[in-house]
């Protein structure tokens, strides 16, 4: 069994300054040896994905903190990741678990509103929260790709690559998800 202990963090950056040219596996490999700069680069690269995955399930106001929690947890558990290229799928799973744990630890009413108690939201904020609520009401397999696409502005290819899904699957999920979202919003407009 190959279990690599997490090395002590080193002060020496082993990657060049322009991390955009380095592939994810190399960054993970460097981060696993304790290179915090490499982990920082992974954070920059995948924070948007994690944010989208969390936003698909958790209240909007809590998401920025949860993003930090996910990456700190990832930093502690990075040595367990055996396929560096699968980092995207791995941290997305971690984000889902974080959202589940957050849901369990939150009051039931928290999920009903993204608005801060006592404040009067603008019509734009209300409309946004309505759409977010409709997104979260979709089946899990649709809401995540659709949130990444509509909120985080990720393209279909990027979603497929980072979540480890096929292009066909993501196309289907996006297509079906937007149809359900339209139905949901149409229903709310009619009945709400």
């Amino acid at each position: 069994m190959r279990v690599r202990p997490l090395a002590e963090p080193t002060a020496t950056a082993v990657i060049p300054s322009d991390v955009r040219t380095i592939d994810t596996a190399a960054l993970v490999g460097a981060a696993q040896t304790g290179d915090r700069a490499a982990f920082g680069a992974l954070y920059e690269r995948f924070a948007r994905l994690v944010h989208g995955v969390l936003l698909a399930s958790a209240p909007r106001d809590d998401v920025p903190d949860l993003v930090q929690d996910v990456f700190l947890r990832a930093l502690r558990q990075l040595h367990t990741l055996r396929e560096p290229a699968a980092f995207g799928g791995w941290i997305a799973t971690m984000a889902r678990n974080e959202a589940r744990m957050h849901h369990r630890s939150s009051r039931p009413t928290e999920a009903l509103s993204d608005q801060v108690a006592g404040s009067t939201p603008s019509p734009e904020t209300t409309a946004m929260d309505d759409v977010l609520r409709a997104l979260r009401a979709l089946p899990e397999r649709y809401r995540e790709p659709l949130t990444l696409r509509l909120v985080e502005q990720m393209g279909g290819e990027e979603i497929a690559r980072t979540l480890g899904l096929t292009h066909g699957t993501v196309r289907v999920y996006l297509h079906h998800g937007i149809r359900l979202l339209r139905e949901q919003l149409g229903h709310e407009t009619t009945h709400g």
Partner: peptide, 29 residues
């Protein structure tokens, strides 16, 4: 829907604009 650089769909653009404030904003780790 698949490719945000393709010719826009007005309805999806409207949803994107509504949701823009909820998008990720870079913050340091």
């Amino acid at each position: 829907l698949w490719d945000p650089t393709a010719a826009p769909d007005p309805e999806i653009e409207r949803l994107e604009a509504l949701l823009r404030p909820a998008a990720y904003r870079a913050t340091p780790l």
